[in-house]
Design a protein around this nucleic acid. Structure first.
Lengths: 330, 330
DNA sequence: GTGAAAGCGCTAACAC
DNA sequence: GTGTTAGCGCTTTCAC
């Protein structure tokens, strides 16, 4: 490393570089930042050289104070599982970092003083906010995040908000039609956290798909997305055994499968079983559950496009289609 | 909301509050921040009142520039799975936020220019860094992170570094003794990413535990922690069927289980199977795998203690013990 | 206990 | 193209 700060114990500043390069501080700023102001090639090189020799690095705080913006993207979640799964998270982080920004991960409970919390924090000054959490609707979030760029990914968008929507209806329609095609006339739906708008929409999609396909929905059993709640649901389901079980998560489907196995019922022989949110790779042999999924990389690509040029993002938002994935259970 | 900024379109500053309260800006700063300088109760109340009326909120950037520190905790990872699992992540985020700080999540690949990357970014100014990634050893990280507080959680600590260590040896010893107690004389070890120091130590722990307990390690099969790599490993294992299979992750154990099932071998009747990193709750009935786990909440509590008072953290670091968890497969 | 004033390190306006 | 000069909003001496 070639670091030798001019003043002992202090990091070199733009002034130090300017002195070393024999130019004005403003030139250094222009040479080192994506400024649109012109700098002669010769001075630019001198500056770059001096900066390297001094081991100069920008102070993002000072830069942020001056420009009133900061290379940070806030990712707003309730639970980490709001990010669907780990397959989404790592590429998302990569995407954010590839833009020279970093991700600040904010977990918002259902507290009322979210605004105070946010406004006092760095998150209020971020370049953009990605809202996965269903804590607030588009209007509130816009008000909250000042002039910042907000992308709604939680389903709570309105006409004015930038948004990416997972179009679950398409995959669910396909799934239910598939079941119908295999002779299913009646089914039970196992649901997750109904407080969530996304879940509400998902349930509605199942209802309408069933109505359209001519599948009778015998009942809806409440769960919480977890394997355990699926096992519990199975006890209820076993009473009036339907021809098919639709679950709004794969984990619940696994639970239902194990729960019903205790009663000697196994898919696909005794009933058809469908999950939701298929992760493409690494499916367990023991739980080869038919499901609905979407292309994670398409979602990340959409987010990346938004982050790169928010103003050019389609006003109508972006829709990511889902598709039915046939596996062993249905 | 009671927000009425004095100048149109601009957020109120400390100067606005000072004017409204009829005091000097310095007083406002002292009243509103945990400053040790005294402020008369009466003025403090005036300030608080004015701030509330104006809807004043601190600008963390300006504060950070002045104090050279910022209420951000950097979480350094390679993959999100470095955080063990989701059960760890949500409580960790809660812990960080409960301290009034926020988490900035940084994914470092194996790139060489990490230092440049970090020094130019906010992460360089954070209050503390939690290093889960094995990208660098303690010395490098300390050099990199300036004077900041660094907690090593990746096993790459030295005598001077603050660290929390998961003591895997204890749980592995227990596991191997347990296998020996059930008559196991020979076993195969399925390993993960061997480039990682943690994995290296884990493998060494198995070796020494086997030597101590008198279990012969027939071979070591390389995997990558994933279910799929476990399935592949099973093909190799099936050739010379050992009495037990130890896997350094639960996912690989699941894969091994399914892979060997194709050859008609099922635990615990035909062999004993052990995983690693048990998540306590929600174990799948179909994969009831004996494993080694540790108390996630103890880890989070340790991190919280460090974050709250880094200088009071035990110089010797903290050890989180692991324990063997007996389940159906061994 | 209080306030004026000098930074923190950078960018943006404005002259040249 | 270049340099000078004000800030950005806060904390912190330092004098009172």
């Amino acid at each position: 490393m070639t670091e030798k700060p001019p003043r002992e114990g202090k990091r070199p500043t733009i002034a130090d570089v300017a002195r070393a390069a024999g130019v004005a501080p403003a030139i250094v700023s222009r040479a080192l930042s994506p400024s649109r102001r012109p700098v002669s090639l010769e001075k630019k090189e001198r500056v770059l050289k001096a900066a390297a020799e001094l081991g100069y690095h920008q102070n993002p705080l000072a830069r942020g104070l001056a420009t009133k913006s900061i290379d940070l993207v806030a990712v707003i979640i309730n639970y980490l599982s709001d990010l669907s799964d780990l397959d989404l998270f790592d590429p998302l982080l990569d995407a954010i970092q590839s833009l020279g920004k970093q991700a600040i991960l904010i977990r918002v409970g259902r507290t009322k003083r979210i605004d105070d919390f946010l406004r006092n924090s760095l998150s209020y000054h971020v370049h953009a906010a990605l809202v996965f959490s269903d804590f607030a609707d588009a209007g509130e979030v816009r008000a909250l995040f000042h002039s910042d760029n907000v992308l709604m990914l939680n389903g709570r968008f309105d006409a004015e908000s930038a948004r990416i929507r997972i179009d679950e209806q398409s995959g669910i329609d396909e799934l239910v039609r598939h079941a119908r095609g295999r002779g299913v006339g009646s089914a039970v739906l196992v649901t997750g956290r109904v407080s969530s708008l996304v879940e509400e929409a998902r349930i509605a999609a199942y209802r309408s798909a069933c109505a359209a396909a001519g599948v009778r929905l015998l009942s809806e059993v409440g769960g919480d997305y977890s394997y355990g709640s699926g096992v519990k649901a199975a006890a209820v389901i076993a009473v009036a055994m339907p021809e098919a079980v639709f679950c709004t998560s794969d984990s619940m489907a696994m639970g239902v499968m194990d729960g019903l196995a205790r009663a000697g019922r196994r898919p696909p022989a005794d009933y058809l079983l469908y999950g939701f949110d298929a992760v493409d790779k690494g499916n367990f042999a023991a739980y080869d559950i038919s499901s609905v999924g979407f292309d994670r990389s398409a979602l990340v690509a959409g987010i990346l496009a938004y982050l790169g040029a928010p103003e050019e993002f389609p006003a109508a938002g972006l829709d990511i289609p889902t598709r039915f994935i046939a596996r062993g259970t249905g």
